[in-house]
Amino acid sequence: MISSIDNYYSTNYSKCNLSESFLASWKGVAYPTDFIQIFSLPLQILAFYIILTKTPVQMKSMKWPLFYNHLFCSIFDVILCTFSTIYIILPMLGVFTVGVFSWLGIPIILELILLTCSLLSLAFSYIYLFESRSRAVSQNPFKMSRKSTRIKYYSYLILSYSTIFIFLIIIPSDQETAKLQALQAYPCPTQEFFTFPILILNSDSTTSTFIVIIFMPIFIAHSVGHGVFHVTWTIWYLYVAPSNQVSIETQKKQKTFLKNVILQFSIPSVFILFSVAIIFTSSFYSQEMMNLGVDVAGLHGIGESIAVIFVHSPYRKAAGQLIFRWNDPQSSTRVSAVRGNSSAFTI
């Protein structure tokens, strides 16, 4: 066995034929995600402003679910793109961060916990958004109208989500030995493996394969399943078995808003799913593609903010009013007239 990391770097590593591309380096995740966040932040702030100040009466019951969803999405995006931008080396499950927190000296394990919590909160907020929409359909027998039931349900979700922290249990305490074992399985990582304070989450290839190939897909399916459950029964009692006691106009608005919420979820999810697909297909192995997967995940913030603003008709019209007022300050009379008809917004 190689006696030390330094000895390996000076002997064995010199024989590797490595790519020195920009995308494979730490800069390939740090710079693109910073650039993405520059464009995301104004859109995120605009979405917050519109949700809080421009939500019409017809959408009042969904104002806070929309707000919380956008809040947790924004927190995740800011952490991923700015504070704890992650550089992942697969298949050895090695990670380090190149965000603001890493330059401040915050331990990487704390950054991973923060990043994981923000990702779980994002998933949690989408489930809450769909559950709130399901609860608004009066004839739905599966809606959780009682507060105690919702507390039990979301407590269960939090407990099930906490299983992801299993990676804290399997992190090797002897990182020097773990790095040497990882190098035996994958002898030619990028130079960042030796120049950055990398943390090996697990050096056993069997356990790593289980986490990446089995545990994570099951975990993702569990989260998606809850959202699908709430959406399915909402669709059933709006389209297949609608209530005769609810007016056609109300049902029409509920259908429209359900379509908008699904679209709001689908647009940013494309970036996450595409990112996950890139990461899984690049596991064996391309560091450029791995970093590209992280960069694509960073686009979630732009997609989510644009979806919030433009999918819902009242928010889209409110954004148009703001732009119209900024471009033509003399048109305040016309803007006021449009505002006066805000009650006519449909959802």
Rank of each mutant, 00 (worst) to 15 (best):
G105D: 06
I45D: 02
R150A: 12
I45K: 01
I51E: 04
R150F: 09
G94A: 13
W64M: 08
L110G: 07
Q44C: 02
M144V: 12
L104K: 03
M144Y: 12
T97C: 06
T85E: 05
L120I: 14
F35V: 12
I169M: 07
I86K: 07
I108C: 07
S121L: 13
Y161C: 15
T53C: 10
T149E: 14
V57Y: 11
V95I: 11
F48T: 03
I109C: 02
L90Y: 13
K54T: 01
L93V: 04
F83L: 05
Q44H: 06
G99S: 00
D34N: 14
A47L: 00
I113Q: 00
S61I: 11
P56Q: 10
Y153R: 14
F67C: 02
S125G: 08
R150M: 09
I45C: 03
A47V: 00
S160C: 14
L71H: 03
L52K: 12
I86M: 07
R135Y: 14
A47C: 02
P107A: 05
L115F: 05
F48S: 00
K152A: 14
M144S: 12
C73N: 09
K152H: 11
S173E: 15
L168C: 05
L43K: 04
Q58P: 11
R135P: 07
S132H: 01
I75F: 03
Y68F: 13
F48E: 01
M59V: 03
Y153N: 11
L93W: 09
Q139S: 15
F142S: 02
A123Q: 12
S121E: 12
G99T: 01
L159T: 05
I89H: 07
H70M: 05
G105P: 08
M92I: 15
F76E: 06
F167D: 12
L168R: 04
P141L: 03
L46N: 03
T116Y: 04
M62C: 06
L112T: 06
K63I: 06
S61N: 13
C117E: 07
F96I: 10
I169S: 08
F167W: 15
K143Y: 06
F48M: 02
A123W: 08
P42L: 04
I106T: 09
R133T: 07
F83T: 00
K54I: 00
I166A: 09
R133E: 00
V95C: 11
L122S: 09
I51V: 12
A123M: 13
Q175E: 01
L115K: 02
W103V: 08
R135V: 13
K143P: 03
I45M: 01
K60H: 09
S162Q: 02
T116A: 09
R135H: 14
L80S: 08
L168M: 10
T53P: 09
K63P: 06
I127V: 11
L115H: 01
P56R: 10
Q37A: 13
